[in-house]
């Protein structure tokens, strides 16, 4: 059985930014058999969390101009980004950190990384309730993940 990790990224107090954490929380309640972790940053801590796993599912809220609740599913290889000049240490991106990981620790990094990015609607307000479209997206992501852990149905991951 491959060693799998479900990792949610976000801020627990900011409305839609907590979407990734919410997926992990609900997945635990629904009996997710994989290891689960939360992370509030995408700096080098990300590497500490994912090294040693064979397959990792990352869930994160993001903004790329789509309608709130839109989901993008990406293979981690597509997220890798070596081309970043750094203004401050807070500007590390998910793709940049993954790239560093694969360059430095190719044997320890996961064979597969899958990312679900959920377009956030409101990341300005302090709240522990998601906006309705992001709430629906969280449930959609959970259904995909449940399909994998219950029956091996990889659906859109194929």
């Amino acid at each position: 059985m491959p060693k799998r990790l479900l990792l949610g990224i976000g801020n627990p107090f900011l409305k839609d930014d907590r979407a990734g954490l919410e997926v992990v929380y609900r997945a635990r309640l629904r009996g997710c058999p994989w290891e689960t972790q939360e992370l509030y940053t995408v700096g080098f801590e990300l590497l500490d969390k994912i090294k040693g796993y064979q397959e990792v599912f990352l869930i994160d809220a993001a903004q790329w101009g789509a309608s709130p609740g839109t989901i993008i599913q990406l293979n981690g290889q597509k997220l890798r980004d070596p081309h970043l000049s750094t203004i401050n240490t807070h500007s590390m991106t998910l793709g940049h950190t993954l790239e560093i990981g694969y360059r430095l620790f190719p044997k320890e990094m996961p064979l597969e990384i899958w990312a679900f990015l959920i377009q956030a609607g409101d990341i300005e307000h302090f709240a522990q309730e998601l906006s309705p479209p992001v709430e629906r997206a969280v449930e959609d992501v959970l259904k995909c993940l449940e399909g994998i852990w219950l029956s091996g149905d990889r659906g859109a991951f194929q």
Partner: peptide, 9 residues
């Protein structure tokens, strides 16, 4: 404010 971010220049 809060959270991680990408800050391209």
């Amino acid at each position: 404010a809060a959270g991680p971010g990408s800050t391209p220049l």
